[in-house]
């Protein structure tokens, strides 16, 4: 089986600091990490490769040159080769333009690595949180998709896929080729061994840019190729303070306050 994993380097949003007075982002302080949902894709692929050793795993990322570091991190879990797709003209791309560039990159990489049976994407990236690039990529490639997947097993060209739903799980079979978006797994992600970390340095990492993406329509990328525009960003000021209730009547006062403010109105008969 031939697997492609799409990953993204993102700022660690738990480390982001806001300039509270100017309501702007202090982005430079945030460390860059591999998008957490993409880490789950790596675990899924590593498991598939263990069970079927003739499986090839290719990692692709679209991003700035320092995203190379993120692909290297992935290699310590899984990956036989990586591709970083970088070009200044990609910047400003929204989800439609991004997924279009990725679809062109997939076609380019397939020329060398062969057709992919399975494409894995994290459910969403924690910086944009749209969950749109995976399904949009599947549409550009005209292949089937399953979203919110937590488990995959394979048998020849048929995959058995467990998908998280609002009320539990659904089990589907999927013919390859297909694209899966992976959400938080019910098991832990493996911790890379030292040996794996060391050998990760020797895994080939190729660079590609716009000039290699022959056939890509430049009208469909970057800011000008993106149907959506951000017109404004702003922060919502944090709530000023919490009102604490203390003393023997604390609960009584709290419930009365909630009642008075109609927060629990439906309850009162």
């Amino acid at each position: 089986m031939n697997i492609l994993i799409c990953i993204k380097q993102v700022p660690d949003t738990n480390e982001i600091l806001m300039d509270e007075e100017r309501h702007t982002l202090i982005r430079s302080k945030a460390a860059n990490i591999v998008n957490p949902f993409d880490m789950y894709s790596l675990e899924i692929a590593a498991r598939l490769q263990e069970n079927r050793p003739n499986t090839k795993v290719v990692i692709v990322s679209m991003g700035p040159l320092h995203a190379e570091e993120a692909i290297r991190t992935c290699f310590s879990i899984v990956g036989d080769i990586g591709y970083l797709i970088s070009d200044p003209r990609f910047s400003g791309s929204d989800t439609l333009a991004t997924s279009y560039i990725l679809s062109q990159a997939v076609r380019l990489i397939e020329n060398t690595e062969g057709t992919f049976d399975l494409i894995l994407c994290g459910k969403q990236a924690i910086d944009g949180d749209t969950a749109q690039v995976g399904p949009e990529l599947a549409e550009h490639l005209a292949i089937a998709q399953v979203t919110n997947v937590i488990e995959v097993t394979s048998e020849e060209t048929l995959l058995t896929v467990t998908k998280e739903t609002e009320t539990g799980y659904a089990i589907c079979t999927a013919n390859t080729p297909c694209l899966l978006t992976i959400t938080k797994l019910s098991r832990e992600i493996r911790i890379p061994s030292l040996k794996k970390k060391l050998s990760a340095r020797k895994i080939p990492l190729e660079h590609r840019s716009l000039k290699e993406l022959v056939g890509l329509d430049e009208q469909r990328i970057g800011l000008q190729g993106s149907p959506t525009r951000v017109v404004k960003t702003f922060t919502i000021p944090r709530k000023t303070s919490c009102t604490f209730f203390t003393g023997p009547d604390a609960v009584k006062e709290l419930m009365q306050t909630l009642q008075d403010n109609n927060h629990i109105q439906e309850v009162a008969l």
Partner: peptide, 11 residues
């Protein structure tokens, strides 16, 4: 956006 650190208006 950015895990709720920022709000964006998009058209």
């Amino acid at each position: 956006a950015l895990s709720g650190h920022l709000m964006a208006k998009i058209i």
